[in-house]
C-alpha cells in the first residue's frame, strides 16, 4: 500500500478533521489535505491529484453523499477510493452510499483500528 498518496479528508467539524489527520499520521499517511464541505472538496479533487477521500456525510451546502455522486460522475475521479465516515447509521444511508459507489463506510464514533482496516481494504482494490 502506497502511503505517499495524497489523502483528502472532508468534515465540517474542525476537531474531527484534526483527529482524522492525526490518526492518519499514526498510519504513516503524511500527505493530507482538508475540506469542510462537499463543494470545497470537489474543487480540490478536480484541481489536485488525490489517491483517497475520507468524507463525512452531514455537511452544507454539499453533503458527503452528493460529493460521492459527483466524484463517481467525473471521468477522471470515478475510480477514486472513497470512504464515508459518518454518524448517519441508518440502513437506508448505508444502502444509498453503496448504490452511489462508496468504497467503504465507517460509523462514528469509530476506533483507529477500524479506520486502518477500511483504508487497507479499499487501497488493495484501488
Amino acid at each position: 500500500m502506497d502511503k505517499n498518496i495524497n489523502v483528502l479528508i472532508v468534515d465540517d467539524y474542525r476537531t474531527m478533521l484534526r483527529i482524522i489527520r492525526n490518526l492518519l499520521k499514526q498510519l504513516d499517511f503524511n500527505n493530507v489535505d482538508e475540506a469542510t464541505d462537499g463543494q470545497e472538496a470537489l474543487a480540490k479533487l478536480r484541481a489536485g491529484n488525490f489517491g483517497l477521500v475520507i468524507s463525512d456525510w452531514n455537511m452544507a451546502p454539499m453533503t458527503g453523499l452528493d460529493l460521492l455522486k459527483e466524484v463517481r460522475a467525473d471521468a477522471r475521479l470515478k475510480n477514486l477510493p472513497f470512504i464515508m465516515i459518518t454518524a448517519e447509521s441508518k440502513t437506508e444511508n448505508v444502502v444509498a452510499a453503496k448504490q452511489a459507489g462508496v468504497s467503504n463506510y465507517i460509523v462514528k464514533p469509530f476506533n483507529a483500528e477500524t479506520l486502518k482496516e477500511k483504508i487497507e481494504k479499499v487501497m488493495v482494490h484501488a
Binding site: M62, L67, A87, A96
Partner: peptide
C-alpha cells in the same frame, strides 16, 4: 433537497 440532504438525520 438532494438525496444526501434528505437522508441526513444525524446521530441516532
Amino acid at each position: 433537497k438532494t438525496e444526501g440532504q434528505e437522508l441526513a438525520n444525524g446521530p441516532q
